[in-house]
Write a protein that binds this DNA or RNA. Structure first.
Length: 491
DNA sequence: AGCACA
């Protein structure tokens, strides 16, 4: 059976791939040697060296398929074989289309090092100590430190990748000298890889970040952990430094919050460019990138302290991120780049889950395709155990038609939040939140517009936040409407 | 000299 007309184990011609498989390499051939060999044909985006029992195979991934084809074609018709250290190298298309997580990109050279300091708290190793240690290898441009689940980490920026590489090879796995550390620190190993960054965005000198190239950079008297940075306002008070990227942490997360949900929520204020969600110290956080600061400010003011779902669930805390442009690689369940056109089937606009909605909503008879509707599948399907005290299940089912009818209407005044029309129409279960009634979204605009047709929903469950035009209405003029079509923003 | 495992 095995030999009959089946696929031979190896074919002479593989289907093209931007990944090439190289054989007969010299022992422990380095990435530099591979790149040297391949880079005349295109840009190498990833490699995997020392593959196979003999460590004499490797994979090289080009940025573009045509580059891989160019290399294979060239050597197929060349009288000189590809060579490394005088050895003939055999190359062919890999049977995979990409190199899968070779070394988590930490091995592709960069002038910026990602340093994980094991076994210490962030307070144990000062930025000055790091600066001292890494300056032994060359001029350190910038350092940024932060706390991650992996531990205390630092990004250390050198002039070039060579300098960074020398620091890395000298220090990786080593320990910071004891005399530079507090006495209680037992050990302090450095794990060093290359960062994907090339230029750190340091806005202040602080105990968390330094820019040694700019002595005039303002000193931040009190950089606060976690959130963005602060500046001193005209009134002498500390003021959060605004950014086009919001950092959202979510409290009381009883229900899953997906990229799509966030996109829907935050798109109410303007076009969302990128979203990344991640865990930090066991908490849920997300970064939401807008094209400009004004939009972010608007979204922050409107959403801060509000809950995505009524009942105090998924309460948003917003601050300004230090980031200005998120490094979102692929579109997956943790991150999304909405600025990439035609990226698969992903909608550039808030998800239109029209197909799923009617069934899920049950009885909703609205039009089949409504870009603003978020069906909230996850939530629909999540079991909602009855709770004492009449706490409702997260109520998505009610009110859909109200939201729907919103579409045609545009415009309660800018004071929808504080409109007297809302008095007494807060959520049944008043969440222990300050200010605006209940669920940010569930009330805004809906009852306001519909109160003549519908009785208030006191005692009734509420729908999830999907507020789109509701929020739009709040925008103090001038904001481009969130509409379909090509984004008017560019990176 | 013939396809990796995060």
């Amino acid at each position: 059976m095995a030999s009959s007309a089946g696929q031979p184990q190896f074919r002479y011609t593989q289907p093209p791939s931007k990944v090439l498989h190289l054989r007969n390499l010299p022992w422990e051939c380095t990435e530099e040697e591979l790149i040297e060999l391949c880079k005349p044909f295109g840009r190498i985006v990833n490699t995997k060296c020392n593959v196979g029992a003999n460590h004499n195979q490797a994979f090289v991934e080009f940025a573009d398929l045509n580059q891989a084809i160019a290399m294979v074609s060239y050597y197929a018709s060349s009288s000189e074989p590809a060579q490394v250290r005088g050895k003939s190298v055999y190359l062919q298309y890999s049977n995979r289309q990409e190199i899968v997580n070779n070394k988590s990109t930490g091995d592709v050279a960069s002038n910026v090092l990602l340093v994980t300091i094991e076994g210490v708290d962030s307070g144990d190793v000062s930025i000055d100590v790091l600066h001292l240690v890494f300056s032994a290898f060359g001029f350190v441009h910038k350092i940024a430190t932060f706390e991650k689940t992996a531990g205390f980490q630092a990004l250390v920026q050198f002039s070039d990748a060579d300098t960074a590489a020398s620091a890395r090879s000298a220090l990786d796995g080593r320990s910071i000298p004891r005399y530079l550390l507090p006495e209680h620190v037992a050990s302090c190993h450095l794990r060093i890889s290359f960062s994907a960054h090339t230029d750190l965005n340091v806005k202040f000198q602080s105990h968390r970040s330094r820019d040694y190239t700019n002595p005039n950079l303002p000193v931040n008297p009190s950089a606060i952990d976690g959130a963005g940075q602060f500046t001193v306002g005209p009134d002498g008070k500390r003021r959060e430094l605004e950014s086009n990227v919001l950092l959202a942490s979510i409290e009381n997360m009883q229900y899953a919050v997906t990229v799509d949900v966030l996109n829907t929520v935050f798109s109410a204020f303007g076009r969302v460019q990128k979203i990344a969600i991640f865990e930090k110290n066991g908490g849920f956080q997300a970064l939401i990138q807008y094209p400009d600061i004004a939009t972010a400010v608007l979204a922050k003011e409107a959403l801060e302290g509000h809950c995505i779902y009524d009942g105090g669930y998924c309460k948003l805390h917003l601050s300004y991120s230090r980031h200005t442009d998120l490094n979102v690689k692929g579109n997956n369940d943790r991150s999304r780049d909405y600025t990439i056109p035609a990226s698969g089937m992903l909608p550039a606009q808030p998800p239109s889950l029209a197909g799923a909605a009617p069934a899920a909503v049950g009885g909703w008879q609205g039009p089949p395709s409504t870009p603003i509707m978020y069906s909230g599948n996850e939530f629909m399907s999540s079991p909602c155990p009855p709770q004492p005290g009449g706490v409702p299940r997260p109520q998505h089912l009610q009110g859909w038609e109200y939201g729907q009818s919103q579409i045609a209407s545009q415009t309660p005044g800018p004071n929808a939040f504080s409109s007297p029309a809302y008095a007494g129409q807060g959520p049944l279960i008043t969440p222990p939140m300050p200010s605006p009634p209940g669920l940010v979204a569930s009330n805004i605009g809906t009852n306001n517009l519909q109160s003549s047709n519908h009785s208030p929903h006191i005692g009734q469950p509420q729908m999830p936040y999907y507020g789109h035009q509701q929020m739009q209405m709040q925008m103090p003029g001038g904001l481009p409407p969130v509409s379909g079509g090509t984004p008017a923003y560019h990176m």
